[in-house]
Write a protein that binds this DNA or RNA. Sequence first.
DNA 1: TATTGTTATACTCTATAACTATA
DNA 2: TATAGTTATAGAGTATAACAATA
Lengths: 160, 160
Amino acid sequence: MTSEVLTRQSVTPELALDGLDSVLGLHIGTTNTLFVSRLERQLEPLSVTPKQVAILWLVHANPGVKQTDLSRFFKIERPTVHQFVRQLMRNGYLVNEPSKLDRRAGGLWITESGQITLAEARRVIVAHEDELTACLTVREKSELFRILMKVYLSAPSKEV
Amino acid sequence: MTSEVLTRQSVTPELALDGLDSVLGLHIGTTNTLFVSRLERQLEPLSVTPKQVAILWLVHANPGVKQTDLSRFFKIERPTVHQFVRQLMRNGYLVNEPSKLDRRAGGLWITESGQITLAEARRVIVAHEDELTACLTVREKSELFRILMKVYLSAPSKEV
DNA sequence: TATTGTTATACTCTATAACTATA
DNA sequence: TATAGTTATAGAGTATAACAATA
């Protein structure tokens, strides 16, 4: 009745790890790289990156949304959001219509070309995620979501 | 007997997510950014980045290790490993002693200064991880490790 | 003064292509 | 031919500093 424990060491058995494999950040980082690098390749024909798709996704679901709102949602800085938005506008996937109520703010709208790209990208993402999580049970998958969310949302705010 | 479900929407309730929060890659990515960006700040006084510490850690545990071995362990390309190694050598944390058996290969050794830095970095990392996972039960923490490892190790190889 | 968007710049991590030296 | 290391370059994602326009 031995239960196999998968370890990182199985990749390179000759290396001593000295506890490095008990660093959670390492596992999150390498798993993230796994997801991102594979997805980037699969999205390449659509001329969008994973993060650009996420932005496109939210603009589609929230027509007229402001960059500041996207910045708050992703917890990234406004110039960082702007970089994605700029590239999406260059590619004709988004347009910026200045707000009439507050002329500082712009409202972002998805174009028809953006909608087509988003629809295709969503299919790619679903297939990609299904492939990478095929090894997990339904319960494991939902636990992974729940625990990651718990860590993410309970993180002390940045300035502390 | 309602059990609270934490959602990403709680951050920006005014935004429609349209299923974006069911994309696992998003949660892994944002949680990764959370870990990395906070840790970078805390490691800054030591003049090392998170990945540099990981390299230093393995060199310390495996005196004379080759860059190729590190490349296999982290599943990153040799030039990527070399970049970290080069910076660590510049800072005097590592030295490269060419192998006598195979003069193509170098063996990496940690310096005394590197050992001091590594010891301090390990303390920073442990404290940082404890802080970010304080919200998790022991069981949740071990499940998170186990499930991430399962995904990582069962991933189809790159060239497929 | 505060907020929104923008530009410029830089850093971390990653990759590919092409090279040298050695096996 | 194959392997170890290196160099050059690029791309994705992030940040800070400083600015203009508007509120």
